[in-house]
């Protein structure tokens, strides 16, 4: 239908949340690697309490886009707005300070450390003994991680190394870490890819819960049934440009696949 990949397919106008300021907006995001344009001017809006799915084939630019949104890459062109204000993200830490948390496919957990240590990795609370020696405040780490996991309705051993947990539990720890640090935007890269069916269901359920807490979620997946289960809107990329954007209840898997492969 739409043979020219550079011309975006007609964008569904005005999502239900159009009267509010988007939590996160990207305008004309462009990223080049040498002669290769990995991302060629992509626009994106994400609203609070919304799940936006990013779909696209391998090499479509999904990872490049989220790396620009999470401070890993600095875009060559384009603008990033957080809560309506323009921001520049020099590194992932700056993104996190704004409340943009990213959960990568490999979860970035230290498998040899326990849940509390992973939730606080790189940001450990410290108290002083005799007003002199800094000491990790493990009880505080444990209590806070227990609280956040309970708020997500996850029950797991807090004292075992994370590598002893199941895939779904590890995913929950990664999500719990983002929540504890007050993520307002949560970017999830293939959160269900490595999981068995019951655990996929659990993660989908978690995403629903975060949504009701007002978190804006960007969800990358190859799995269309997962996308249709959790997303409100879907943005399809193809060869670094937008191939289309659809409200989830106005589209079908068939249409999305066509957008992805450029049929």
């Amino acid at each position: 239908m739409n043979a020219d990949p550079v011309t975006p397919a007609p964008v569904t106008p005005a999502p239900v949340t159009a009267d509010r300021i988007p939590l996160l907006s990207a305008r004309n995001m462009t990223k080049r690697f040498g002669g290769l344009t990995a991302l060629g001017g992509v626009d994106l809006d994400l609203y609070a309490g919304e799940v936006l799915a990013l779909a696209g084939d391998n090499g479509a630019g999904k990872s490049t886009l989220i790396k620009c949104l999470s401070g890993v890459y600095q875009p060559d062109d384009g603008q990033l707005l957080f809560g309506g204000r323009e921001v520049r993200l020099g590194n992932p830490r700056e993104a996190r300070e704004l409340g943009i948390e990213t959960i990568y496919q490999d979860l970035a957990l230290a498998g040899n450390l326990d849940v509390g240590a992973n939730v606080f990795l790189g940001r450990e609370p410290v108290r002083r003994v005799f007003g002199l020696f800094p000491v990790l405040d493990r009880p505080a780490m444990r209590a806070a991680s227990q609280q956040v996991l309970e708020s997500l309705d996850i029950h797991t051993s807090l004292d075992r190394p994370v590598e002893d947990l199941s895939g779904g539990q590890r995913q929950a720890v990664a999500i719990g870490r983002a929540i504890h640090w007050k993520a307002r935007v949560l970017i999830m890269d293939e959160p269900t890819a490595a999981l068995g069916v019951p655990e996929q269901r659990k993660v989908v359920e978690l995403i629903g819960r975060l949504k009701t807490q007002g978190v804006g979620i960007i969800f990358i997946s190859h799995n269309l049934s997962d996308i249709f289960a959790v997303s409100d809107r879907i943005l399809v990329l193809r060869r670094g440009v937008m191939a289309g954007e659809r409200l989830i209840h106005e589209t079908s898997g068939e249409e999305i696949v066509k957008l992805m492969v450029g049929g």
Partner: peptide, 21 residues
């Protein structure tokens, strides 16, 4: 200490340690 914790984290998952800042 944090120093010790980071030592374990680097050995456990270097990339996770990098991403954790």
């Amino acid at each position: 200490t944090r120093f010790g914790q980071y030592t374990y984290a680097i050995g456990g998952n270097r990339n996770a340690a990098i991403r954790a800042g």
